[in-house]
Design a protein around this nucleic acid. Structure first.
Length: 558
RNA sequence: GCGCCCAUAGCUCAGCGGAUAGAGCGCUAGGUUGCGGACCUAGAGGUCGGGGGUUCGAGUCCCUCUGGGCGCGCCA
């Protein structure tokens, strides 16, 4: 890689300069070598001189000139110069770009991937919707972010496990209400005139499940002791809801490695053992009959109840046990993806992880901001209990997986996201996902055209690429060459939205190339055609791999 | 009151402490026979919410103020 090569040149120059006495410094600063925004400056630019100024007691400009004098020759480098406040700019021969095209084609599906993660084990938990309603669009955002981030981390060489935490614990009042609502709907379907309870789940989906059950079990299913019937409905409701969630997520392109049951944490005694451990370490105290966690000792703003006065452990107790369980499974890093309404839980969860002796830096919580749904400019209010949620399934059916995922990933998770269903459905230039997919389809069309014209796909390893010298060709190569670093940045910053931006940039650069450089055309000499075919293939690989990280398809035609 | 997030072009938003702050939409003016016009070219449009500070260098980091979103249960 050319970047590494330039970095080594600078390091060599530093050491040479120090040895000759021209420059004095103790530690080599962590400098950058990057393509400058303004390409007229060159291919790479190093900021070392500015960083060294104080330490070396010289002006950046002066240091840069000293470094250039002490820099070894390199056959790839045609020019080194000092500019701006002391940037060292490098111009390289086009050969290095042509090498990149070969490398990309050789790597194929694995282009952009690396082993930086070194098998470091990461558990990433997201969606984790309660089993009393369908997956809605807020879950969808967390899902898209979590799944894409997982794909990027895998591509960066991490060992990633995707996990869904099912809040199916016995002490959940919400689950009981849900089951009761279902029972009422069931009876209503049987013709009984019963009003829904005041805190009922009003959603249509409850009726759907009741109908499904009625078909399967018949009218006698409501006969029996009240709590027995209730338990029966609860068991069914939970299983049905979980199955539906699983299906919705699968249709969205998300498959979890682990569906972790909260209930099992209680049944196995892990929750109680966890509480005992905290007790033994004096991290809890009793007050007003309840057991409190001293989370303020670790930066929380209040202590939290961990066991209620009635003896039931709270959600925090189970969640603490859950995080302990994850850490005990050997993960080096836990990433939780939560909605904005949960931001207040970060401090207490980290406190608990600290108290258990793991070090809260092992837990990262990624909070994404709210999703607002619009339909033709009008905001749709959502409430699960009222039953007017916009479900992921609704949107998937209208807008399709690709547009839905792309839209949910376009914005930084730190900012609110307005999702306009009509816009996502539009097959027009207002819809960025098509812009990107169109570029890929165009590439495929070129490759088809080449085949029709009897131009064989070149062997990129040996194909002469020296004809690729025009501005548009060079720009395209430089842009697609950014993928590996882009993946690392997006993964390490936990910022999958960067990849949507990158996809648009690649598509944009490609469309310009396409406009100006005919690949298969009577006016294009055969050798140049073949060289361009190699480049086009590299662009296809780049787009395909980048879209794959977003979970968006790369269509061959549209 | 406390906590988290946000404030960048008319609108929606990018922007890993680096050089002249970008894109899409919208607007204006263009692109004869087309490797797919779901595309391309050019132009207009900015005191990066205000004020301090750190730095060789701040849209980016720190403090503060203003405005907005969300959250502050012995619910999960």
């Amino acid at each position: 890689m050319a970047k590494l090569r330039v970095t080594h040149l600078v390091q060599k120059a530093l050491l040479n300069a120090r040895e000759s006495g021209a420059l004095s410094f103790d530690t080599m600063p962590d400098f950058s070598v990057d393509p400058p925004k303004n390409t007229s400056f060159g291919d790479f630019s190093a900021n070392i001189a500015m960083l060294l100024a104080k330490q070396a007691g010289k002006k950046p400009f002066e240091i840069a000139n000293i470094l250039i004098k002490h820099m070894p020759e390199d056959r790839l480098v045609t020019e080194v110069s000092v500019a701006g406040g002391g940037f060292i700019n490098f111009k390289l021969k086009p050969d290095w770009l042509h090498e990149l095209v070969r490398e990309i084609c050789a790597a194929g599906c694995s282009y952009g991937h690396s082993q930086i993660g070194n098998g470091h084990k990461i558990n990433i938990e997201f969606v984790s919707a309660n089993p009393n309603g369908p997956i809605h669009m807020a879950h969808g955002r967390g899902g898209a972010i979590g799944d894409s981030l997982a794909r990027m981390l895998k591509a960066a060489g991490y060992d990633v496990t995707c996990e869904f935490y099912v809040n199916d614990a016995l002490n959940s009042l919400q689950m009981q209400n849900f089951a009761d609502s279902l029972l009422v709907r069931y009876k209503q379907l049987l013709g009984q005139e019963i009003a829904m309870p005041s805190d009922a789940y009003e959603g249509e989906y409850v009726i759907d499940i009741a109908r499904e059950m009625l078909q399967q079990f018949g009218p006698d299913y409501v006969i029996g002791a009240a709590d027995e019937v209730s338990a029966r409905f609860r068991t069914y409701a939970e299983a049905a809801m979980k199955a539906q969630q699983k299906q919705d997520l699968a249709d969205f392109g998300i498959e979890f490695d682990v569906w972790f049951s909260e209930k099992e944490l209680h049944d196995s005694g892990e929750v109680m053992r966890c509480i005992e451990q905290l007790k033994a370490a004096n991290f809890v105290y009793e007050n007003e009959g309840a057991l409190w966690l001293r989370s303020t000792q670790y930066g929380d703003d209040k202590d939290r109840v961990i066991v209620r006065a009635n003896g039931q452990p709270t959600y925090i107790a189970a969640d603490t046990a859950y995080h302990k369980n994850k850490l005990d499974r050997g993960f080096d890093t836990l990433i939780d993806i939560w909605g904005p309404d949960h931001h207040g839980y970060v401090a207490r969860t980290k406190a608990a992880v600290d108290m258990l002796g793991y070090g809260s830096d092992k837990l990262e919580v990624l909070i994404h901001q709210i999703v607002r749904i619009f339909k033709g400019g009008e905001m749709v209010r959502m409430s699960k209990r009222a039953g007017n949620v916009v479900t992921l399934r609704d949107v998937l059916e209208e807008a399709g997986r690709d547009a839905t995922r792309f839209f949910l990933l376009m914005r930084s998770s730190d900012t609110g996201l307005d999702f306009d269903i009509e816009l996502a459905t539009k097959k027009s230039n207002e819809n960025p996902v098509y812009y990107v997919q169109y570029a890929h389809a165009r590439i495929c069309s070129i490759l088809r055209k080449a085949a029709e014209e009897g131009i064989p796909l070149p062997d990129v390893a040996t194909q002469d690429l020296s004809g690729l010298t025009s501005e548009h060709e060079i720009n395209l190569i430089k842009k697609i060459a950014e993928l590996p670093e882009e993946i690392l940045t997006a993964a390490s910053q936990r910022a999958p939205h960067r990849m949507t931006q990158y996809c648009r940039e690649v598509a944009d650069t490609f469309h310009r190339f396409y406009q100006n450089c005919k690949v298969v055309h009577p006016d294009t000499p055969l050798e140049l055609s073949k060289a361009r075919l190699a480049l086009v293939q590299a662009a296809q690989i780049t787009l395909h791999n980048a879209l794959d990280l977003l979970g968006v398809s790369a269509p061959e035609s549209m």
